[in-house]
Design a protein around this nucleic acid. Structure first.
Lengths: 256, 256
DNA sequence: CAATCTTTGTGCACGCGTTCACAAAGGCAT
DNA sequence: ATGCCTTTGTGAACGCGTGCACAAAGATTG
């Protein structure tokens, strides 16, 4: 600290760390819940607990936005809701398109959380002509041929891809060429995009595999901890002592 | 992820970094594609490119698994597929339950990527009695009353929550109490779980908000293109006339 | 066998993110 | 005012992840 610095309105323009940005929606959700209960102020401790993070982290996160708290009191809920909303760009309307109206695309179209924060589904797009014209979640499905004109007409800058993996890159290219600069990708594909385009991917399969890894680790751990004898007598152990251990360096299937 | 606490002080023997674990499924997918094209070996450069990562990072990731490459040649595709699969625990069967058969839950049940890697949907569970008995994706929906018995009977350790936010914590508690130790949460809620239980969350709304933040920043940037990056050290740059800009220091709604 | 070429595996440095711990700042009571 | 209490805001330390750059290791060729 050591003074020396006058009250600066946190000239951070570029300063907000990515990790902080990723947590702002979390804070916003907790704050919105407080707001609906008409809670006027909240301490960093309380809010952090509601958001499931460390209170020091929360305070540091907020410090990147500016000094919006009052020492000895806490943060004004309404004010903070507004500031975070503004910071995230939620005070404006964001038209989005969903490309690929299969099970997942349809589910997203029906998802209420979409519209709740300024995101408006401008169009549903699919390559199947049989779908064109049908209504999903009260929105008409348009054929992919119209993709470019839809994006231009509605000023869409955010696209959601829920196509099969094989079509994702092609759709992505068309979206980008038409002016989309942010893409949320649900297809199991690594998208290649030019500089200046943001891609976030949501991959159910990957999430499950990560869970499986930890699950396996936990299972192996409980075996080597609870049971002093690594080899469980009897029981269903097809290959006891093989690569069950954490150090399975035995190349079981080394190819030629 | 929202894992409680890092209860692994040293993690000596099998200390694969979390960031590496999160990338293994990505490598596995790229390798599987190569395998299907009968490509025998692949260099770190090629594979990294296919997975969308840096080649040095990929090599370091693989080094945590062991020395599975051959210098001057590359990595044996089939061998690596096996090693990563084993490391991720995909060589065994993982029964999962999906709780909350709304639009999203049904979409997940239909999602092919689920079954493709050892994940088997053991049951679909919903609180709505009208759904019980109906078939979704060829799987019968069971009532939530049966949750505990289903988990125990099938040895389920991974649960997927696709309920509305309000029910998520309650469902989570029941899953954990019944023996589930890994949870994939699609509900817009912060789940509280005891130590030893892993939670990963997938939140569409949060992803969109993060994109919106960057989108807004890009938009503001293109407007004030004359000012590059660094802020003036001594003299504050003349406040740009942006009224809506992201740097709005104007406290528009400062409460009393 | 030796020389050369290719590609892995990794030591090292750097930057980001997290956490601790505490002084500064505001409220409140006396 | 003054002193006490509460809570913010942040300096500093630490640990993790990333990427560079290069030596080691194996293949390949003559």
């Amino acid at each position: 600290m050591a003074t020396g610095r006058n009250h600066r309105p946190a000239t951070r323009s570029r300063g907000i760390p990515e990790a902080t940005v990723a947590r702002l929606p979390l804070y916003l959700r907790a704050l919105t819940a407080l707001s609906e209960r008409s809670v006027p102020t909240v301490s960093s401790e309380e809010l952090a607990s509601a958001a499931g993070v460390n209170s020091a982290k929360l305070r540091k996160d907020f410090s990147y936005l500016g000094s919006y708290g009052t020492r000895g009191v806490g943060y004004d809920v309404e004010y903070l809701v507004y500031q975070i909303s503004r910071e995230l760009g939620l005070t404006q309307d964001w038209p989005v398109v969903i490309v690929g109206i299969g099970n997942l695309g349809a589910a997203l179209a029906n998802y209420g959380g979409f519209a709740s924060r300024g995101f408006r589904v401008a169009a549903l797009i699919d390559a199947d002509p049989a779908l064109a014209g049908r209504q999903v979640a009260g929105i008409g499905v348009r054929h992919v041929d119209e993709l470019e004109s839809i994006i231009e007409t509605n000023g869409v800058s955010i696209g959601v891809i829920t196509t099969p993996g094989g079509a994702a890159q092609q759709v992505c290219d068309r979206l980008v060429a038409a002016g989309v600069t942010s893409i949320l990708n649900f297809a199991p594909t690594v998208l290649t995009v030019p500089d200046g385009v943001d891609v976030r991917k949501v991959d159910l399969s990957i999430e499950l595999q990560i869970l499986a890894f930890h699950e396996q680790r936990k299972a192996a751990e409980s075996l080597t901890q609870d049971v002093p004898e690594p080899l469980a007598p009897g029981a269903a152990a097809p290959a006891p002592g093989r690569d069950q251990g954490p150090d399975g360096d035995i190349p079981a299937v080394m190819p030629a």
